[in-house]
C-alpha cells in the first residue's frame, strides 16, 4: 500500500482536510471515508452516470476522478444540494412523475438534470435525452425522467421570462 497523501478541498460547502490513499477514486473516498453514499457506483468506468457529482459546478464522474485530483476543488454531492431551490423542484418533479423506481440511478440523474436546467436547457425532449445520454436507468424506460426534467425546465423558462 502506498503512503497516504494530504488532501484539502471543499465538500458540500465545507472545507475538508484529509489523508487519502492515492489510488482511491473520488467516489470511493466520498462513500467510504465520508459516508456520502448518495454517490453510487454502477460501472466504475464512466459509462453509467450513477456516480455523478458536481465538481467545480459541472457534473463529473466520481469514479473517473482520483480523490487526489480533487485538491482545491469544490465538490457537491446530492447530500449537499438539499438547500438548492432548483434541485428541490427537480426532486419534487421526480417524485410526482415516479421518475425514481429502484433509486440507484437517481443521484446521477438529478445531477445531470440540475446542470441541464441551470444552463438554460429547454423542455425539448430530444435535448433532454441528449443531456441524459450517459445516464443509465434500468427501471423507468427514461420517459418519466424526461417528463420530470421537461416540467422543471418549462417552469424555469417561465420564471426567467417573468423576471
Amino acid at each position: 500500500m502506498s503512503e497516504q497523501i494530504p488532501l484539502s478541498f471543499t465538500l458540500n460547502g465545507k472545507p475538508v482536510a484529509a489523508f487519502v490513499e492515492p489510488r482511491k477514486s473520488l467516489a470511493d473516498f466520498l462513500r467510504e471515508d465520508r459516508a456520502l453514499t448518495a454517490t453510487r457506483l454502477g460501472c466504475e468506468m464512466g459509462t453509467c452516470g450513477a456516480c455523478l457529482v458536481m465538481m467545480d459546478g459541472a457534473p463529473a464522474h466520481a469514479c473517473l476522478v482520483l480523490a487526489a485530483q480533487a485538491e482545491g476543488a469544490e465538490i457537491t454531492t446530492l447530500e449537499g444540494q438539499s438547500e438548492d431551490a432548483l434541485m428541490a423542484d427537480l426532486q419534487a418533479a421526480f417524485v410526482d412523475r415516479n421518475a425514481a423506481q429502484c433509486g440507484f440511478c437517481t443521484s446521477g440523474m438529478l445531477t445531470t438534470a440540475l446542470a441541464y436546467v441551470r444552463q438554460g436547457g429547454t423542455p425539448d425532449r430530444a435535448a433532454i435525452r441528449d443531456a441524459l445520454s450517459g445516464n443509465y436507468c434500468r427501471c423507468t424506460g427514461y420517459e418519466a425522467i424526461v417528463d420530470a426534467i421537461a416540467g422543471v425546465a418549462e417552469a424555469a423558462m417561465h420564471k426567467e421570462a417573468a423576471a
Binding site: A38, E79, F94, A100, G103, T106, S107, L110
Partner: peptide
C-alpha cells in the same frame, strides 16, 4: 420511497 431516493437517503 421515491422521496428517500431523490433525497439521496436510500440504503442499499
Amino acid at each position: 420511497n421515491a422521496r428517500r431516493h431523490v433525497a439521496g437517503r436510500s440504503r442499499f
